[in-house]
Design a protein around this nucleic acid. Structure first.
Lengths: 282, 282
DNA sequence: TGGGATTTGTTCGTATGTATG
DNA sequence: ACATACATACGAACAAATCCC
């Protein structure tokens, strides 16, 4: 026996052939989960025999798959196929500018329909010196201080997003003392600020980028490997005078979130159930 | 000599120590580019001596950096530090819904200011059977055909984005024959369709996700390694009756693009120079 | 044009460490 | 305590791309 037959593409390294073959076998569900078990690859020693390659070569192949987030190896246990998460559809544009601005109820509703419960932790509140970017977004001096409200989002026990909102500390001095309370502001922070200080949200600016997660995000979202990616959104909210009054930074694991914006007039079904396009009209 | 002194964190593998040390040396610009040269790491053999480790161990460390897009190895030449590209700020929301809708002039203007020239290739035009997702977005049957216009975007020779727009072939039969021409439709396709068929863009829906690039995208954007990521935007344009009349799919390399949306009233400087916040007002 | 030196890529063998069950 | 299975580490040989003379 000279090893499992794999396409011997000219110039293709042996480990790449093995990786490609394993990948196609994974996609074909060949290591299928049996009775609720997670799909598991054969152990390295068996793969060595199967492909007639050394352990180092097999490990390079498996490592290539692990780097891409296709499998996960666990010392002493084995190698498992990572299931692809169902994407969560998140609408970041709200129908009404004056609503929550992506903070709250809008997209949660659609999830409840799908039988998944979304919730966020009570905020952890801090007061900090404004960092350079925060000061820039809020158009305050770097010597000024900000209130920072940090929350974690979950969907049925699964970590969903990390979010931090920044407000000038002057808001508290001006009477918006509930910004310092470590409880979710039920009616929405925007409405609270409007009632308390007269700030009315006239518009907002969103910035979206993708990057590798830091260690905290890796741990919270249970991401690993070089292919792990998060989406990061910066939302700056402006009042009618064009002054920024809030910065909200949200981090979403890229492998299970899709962001949506509706601009202008968009059919109702698209707004309410993004990702599920309505059937062809007749 | 027992190797370059590195923090001997308990339980930390040797290759990880080396990788971390190399990474901090890279960030400190220790392998600095001399007279226009790209920053280059010492060769493997030298690193073996420096860290008093075997070649395989050094290679694991360098491989870890390469997987994260920090360095790039070239056989027969050496290992080079990959320069971090300056991010390009792309505004996807247009002031006027009826403008081009992200296709054209809006965000190009700001780039020209920065001394970088943006341009797009003439479209490659194809006619295809509508694939499942395309048929779903355009709300047509899968038996129907679509016109596909594919373009590549560049900024001063650097590849910037890949874009494909889909239109129902029925538009051509109804008289919009310029959809088939392999030349950029100067006044904007949206305006052309409005003039020719009376389609008026009333709104659009954007979907944003991040994923690994396919082989074509990898080659075009010169991306490599498992950490390579692209942002993909799906824009569905709707007319006043809520009917979709165009789908535009754009792919951007995530390491050099940030996407922007302005909703409601946003101060002029933020709209026109995203990424450069205005200085604190006085 | 050619050939040798340089440098990274591939593959193997081997030994030992460490978490799991 | 023991077997299992992945992780780390070293050494070695040859291949392939590049560079220089």
């Amino acid at each position: 026996v000279l090893g499992r037959e794999v396409d011997d593409v000219a110039g293709q390294p042996r480990w790449q052939e093995i990786a490609d073959d394993l990948n196609s076998r994974i996609q074909a569900d060949e290591f299928g989960a049996e009775d609720g078990q997670e799909a598991q690859l054969p152990k390295e020693a068996d793969l060595c025999e199967e492909y007639n390659a050394s352990r180092n070569t097999v490990r390079e192949a498996v490592g290539w798959l692990a780097d891409r987030g296709i499998v996960r190896t666990e010392r002493g246990r084995g190698t498992y196929v990572i299931p692809r998460p169902e994407p969560i559809e998140v609408t970041l544009s709200s129908r009404e500018i004056t609503e929550g601005g992506g903070e709250g109820a809008a997209y949660v509703r659609q999830l409840v329909k799908l039988g998944r419960e979304a919730y966020r932790t009570s905020p952890r509140v801090e007061i900090q010196q404004a960092s350079e970017p925060v000061a820039r977004y809020l158009q305050i001096g770097e010597d000024e201080q900000v209130v920072l409200r940090h929350q974690q989002g979950y969907i049925t026990k699964d970590p969903w997003f990390l979010q931090t909102s920044f407000y000038p500390l002057s808001f508290v001095r001006d009477g918006a003392t509930r910004l310092l309370e470590a409880t979710d502001i039920g009616e929405g922070t925007v409405k609270y600020l409007q009632a308390k200080l007269g700030y009315k949200q006239a518009g907002y600016h969103d910035e979206i980028s993708a990057r590798r997660p830091d260690e905290i995000e890796e741990a919270f979202f249970k991401l690993s490997g070089p292919s792990a990616t998060v989406l990061e959104t910066y939302r700056t909210s402006y009042d009618a005078d064009g002054r920024p009054f809030r910065l909200t930074v949200t981090v979403w694991p890229a492998d299970r979130n899709r962001l949506h914006y509706n601009i202008g007039e968009v059919p109702e079904p698209v707004v309410h159930t993004p990702g599920e396009q309505p059937p062809p009209q007749d």
